[in-house]
Computed example of a mutant assay.
Amino acid sequence: MSTPKRIVRFLTTAQVTRFYETNIMQASPSQLPMLESAVASPQNHYRYGQNDIFQLAGTLAERIILNHPYQDGNKRTALLAADMFLKINGLQLQEKSVEKDDANEVLKQAQVAVADIQWSAENLAECYRAVARPLAEATAETDQY
């Protein structure tokens, strides 16, 4: 007997663009097709059988970082997108993205490792798995997604 596939919620390109404009700077992606490709990547992996939520988050972040859709802030955008993706699916990486704590430092270094081609989406997924905590309750932020 097979287990039913979990329902996974995905982000849209417009939502990731809004994260960028709200949290990083008021600018549109310089490479919109690259952002669209990055956002579609975890959905494609899911359709082909990948149902590990951390692997999907790692794929999303890796593609945003490596596709480089913005002039600046791609690693920060990737982390915001991965965190929100996990939040809308019941988990969280960061309570507050601006706090200087061990978890945020680990996440920052992980994003840099991907940008430096030292880590893959799989490594990022394991990092996210180690840091993530269940989201206690939906917030106003997650409700809008």
Score class of each variant (00 low, 15 high):
Leu79Asp: 05
Leu79Gly: 03
Leu80Val: 09
Ala81Lys: 03
Ala82Leu: 08
Ala82Phe: 00
Ala82Val: 06
Asp83Ala: 01
Asp83Leu: 01
Met84Glu: 00
Met84Pro: 01
Phe85Cys: 04
Leu86Arg: 02
Leu86Ser: 00
Leu86Asn: 04
Gly90Val: 05
Gly90Ile: 00
Gly90His: 07
Leu91Asn: 00
Leu91Ser: 07
Leu91Gly: 04
Gln92Gly: 09
Gln92Arg: 15
Leu93Gln: 06
Gln94Gly: 01
Gln94Trp: 05
Gln94Asp: 08
Gln94Val: 09
Glu95Pro: 09
Lys96Glu: 12
Ser97Lys: 13
Ser97Pro: 12
Glu99Cys: 09
Lys100Pro: 01
Asp102Phe: 11
Ala103Asp: 11
Ala103Val: 06
Asn104Asp: 07
Glu105Asp: 13
Glu105Phe: 10
Val106Asn: 08
Val106Met: 11
Val106Glu: 11
Val106Gly: 04
Leu107Ser: 00
Lys108His: 12
Lys108Ile: 10
Gln109Ala: 13
Gln109Cys: 08
Ala110Pro: 05
Ala110His: 03
Gln111Leu: 11
Gln111Asn: 11
Gln111Cys: 14
Val112Ile: 15
Val114Asn: 01
Ala115Asn: 10
Asp116Arg: 15
Ile117Gly: 08
Ile117Leu: 13
Trp119Cys: 01
Trp119Ile: 04
Trp119Pro: 01
Trp119His: 11
Trp119Ala: 10
Ser120Val: 02
Ser120Thr: 15
Ser120Gln: 13
Ala121Trp: 04
Ala121Arg: 05
Ala121Ile: 01
Glu122Pro: 03
Glu122Ile: 13
Asn123Asp: 15
Leu124Ala: 08
Leu124Tyr: 10
Leu124Lys: 06
Ala125Lys: 02
Ala125Leu: 02
Ala125Ile: 02
Cys127His: 00
Ala130Tyr: 10
Ala130Gly: 12
Ala130Cys: 12
